[in-house]
Design a binder for these strands. Structure first.
Ligand SMILES: [Mn+2]
Ligand SMILES: [Mn+2]
Ligand SMILES: [Zn+2]
Ligand SMILES: [Zn+2]
Lengths: 147, 147
DNA sequence: CATATGTTGCAATTGATTCTCAATTATTAT
DNA sequence: ATAATAATTGAGAATCAATTGCAACATATG
């Protein structure tokens, strides 16, 4: 599978934009971890490695990464957006613990048929979906009982 | 079914808060329409009716309405949160047209079994879910073809 | 190498949301 | 009813995420 940097270079070329070291650092940092991230976090991670990229550049790069299919918005929480990289990953949804805020990723093939049914029923051309499920994880359920 | 004002009064009493004319105006306005709303919209709707409630009060009341189960956050779009009233309504999810931004509400009983399966699989006590589906509506599909 | 144009960092700006505070008001106890 | 207590209000200030203007700089192209 083509590495994400290549994908981005192609995208940039096609759009007649320019690739820059800053953008490559951002991509590298995003793909160096499997975690969801937010802008501030990403900015701090880069700083820690003494790679100075301004927040403005991060904010400006994210939409390009989304357009090129490398990254997607996952959810809005704590007053800001959270993202994840998706290149080469299977589509998945998220199960959130309402107490400890742990996030479990899952896939469910039944969502496909829900999509199909919806498309037929409402005459929509369905492109994607986002399912967030909320509950209490095993540990937090135990804690609750303990009280 | 108990009217929402009653529910709110009970909630307020139980929590040793206070009910106020401002809060009742907000509730009345929210329930006077079936549409999703955002804070600014709600604020303007109230102003138009010459019912002056400050934005601060709206921002302060929404969490109370959520806690009392009358309202819920639906999605974050255009840089701010959108809400809807849910008292006496069936749970439903949203189908968004990516072009004209029309929103269709739908229900799908299969989501229940997805929830159950998830709960078992990950040992979660599932409380709720939020499914947003994206695509192009009938009209916008036609327009696309037309081009 | 020269040019045209995109990109950067910084600081200022915008917009949503929260907070501070003094004045007001609802609730509860005399 | 009246007073005491504590919550709520509106206005504006403050905060925080996200965007933008701009001058200096960097990249792609010929
Ligand atoms: Mn994920
Ligand atoms: Mn709805
Ligand atoms: Zn938990
Ligand atoms: Zn449409």
């Amino acid at each position: 599978m083509k590495p994400e940097i290549e994908i981005f270079r192609d995208y940039v070329r096609k759009k007649r934009l320019r690739n820059t070291p800053e953008r490559e650092l951002i991509i590298e940092e995003i793909f160096s971890s499997q975690n969801h991230f937010d802008i501030d976090e990403l900015y701090l991670r880069l700083r820690e490695k003494n790679q100075k990229v301004s927040k403005a550049s991060i904010y400006r790069t994210i939409p390009l990464l989304i357009e090129s299919g490398l990254v997607q918005e996952v959810f809005f929480e704590d007053g800001h957006l959270h993202y994840e990289h998706i290149h080469g990953r299977e589509h998945h949804c998220h199960l959130h613990c309402l107490n400890c805020r742990k996030i479990v990723e899952f896939q469910d093939r039944h969502l496909e048929s829900i999509e199909k049914r919806l498309g037929r029923k409402f005459n929509f051309d369905i492109i994607s979906h986002k399912l967030e499920v909320y509950g209490y994880c095993e540990e937090c359920r135990k804690d609750k009982r303990g009280r």
